[in-house]
């Protein structure tokens, strides 16, 4: 059976095509204004890579904040269910899944079958999500990709007092004026994300193993700080941003 999962996120659209539970192809496309079109493009790329046509796919499940905009999806699941299922496939031992995306973050408690037991999320607030790292990288004049490596060079933590990204921007400017290095500021930013994430996940209870997924999981600076806060290193897959789409494709098959 061939199924596909489409994860329509705030920043990117992800597609995973599965054949009998194994990944045939995947693709990631930056989400444009017309999400349907971006999803179309992502699907096209994945189909090309898999060397099949859309008609070969028996079921397409959409997930993510823009999931309702995909007219050709046969089914829909929440981001939470998709994250749980996808993480469970990659890490069957994971009981807590932390998903940090561009505009939303979630803490999900899962059972051995990848079913959601409980969840907590942070929505409609940029503090502690990918946008936060992006804004802050602009404030210290570096790239999002450089944030992680930069922060790993720092060995001290400057406390950041504010929650809101808008106010954090001004705080970062004053840190720059106070001659703090970019490395130390980057670390402080990741520390802030880790504190917020841990605080959110504690609401569902933190049970080992912990899987970390979503685009922000590509950032080694965040992983380093989260490891400190969680008291254990989270399991991070190779393409953490694809896990939601993978979960959706798996749910389509079941």
């Amino acid at each position: 059976m061939i199924t596909a999962g489409v994860d329509v996120g705030a920043e990117t659209v992800k597609v995973v095509i599965l054949k009998d539970g194994e990944v045939l192809a995947s693709s990631i496309v930056k989400a444009g204004l017309d999400r349907q079109k971006s999803a179309e493009e992502a699907m096209g790329n994945a189909l090309n890579a898999a060397k099949i046509s859309k008609s070969n796919i028996q079921k397409i499940t959409a997930t993510g904040i823009g999931r309702k905009e995909i007219s050709w999806a046969t089914d829909m699941v929440t981001e939470i269910a998709a994250a749980a299922k996808g993480a469970n496939k990659l890490f069957p031992s994971a009981r807590t899944v932390i998903d940090i995306g561009a505009e939303e973050s979630r803490g999900v408690k899962v059972n051995a079958d990848g079913k959601v037991i409980d969840f907590a999320k942070n929505e409609k607030c940029a503090a502690g999500v990918g946008s936060f790292v992006e804004s802050m990288s602009r404030a210290i004049e570096t790239t999002v990709e450089q944030m992680g490596p930069l922060s790993l060079k720092s060995d001290k933590i400057i406390p950041m007092n504010v929650t809101c990204v808008v106010f954090a921007e001004s705080e970062v400017v004053s840190l720059i004026h106070a001659k703090q290095t970019k490395e130390d500021i980057a670390r402080a930013i990741h520390e802030a994300i880790a504190t917020r994430t841990t605080s959110m996940v504690r609401r569902v209870g933190i049970e080992k193993d912990i899987a970390l997924i979503g685009g922000v999981a590509n950032n080694p600076g965040v992983i380093e700080r989260l490891t400190q806060h969680l008291g254990t290193a989270p399991l991070v897959p190779k393409d953490p941003q694809l896990v939601g789409a993978l979960g959706a494709a798996l749910l389509a098959a079941s």
Binding site: D118, S199, R202
Partner: peptide, 11 residues
Amino acid sequence: KYLCGPCKPTA
């Protein structure tokens, strides 16, 4: 939100 988050009752 963050300080009280860990105590917030869920389940």
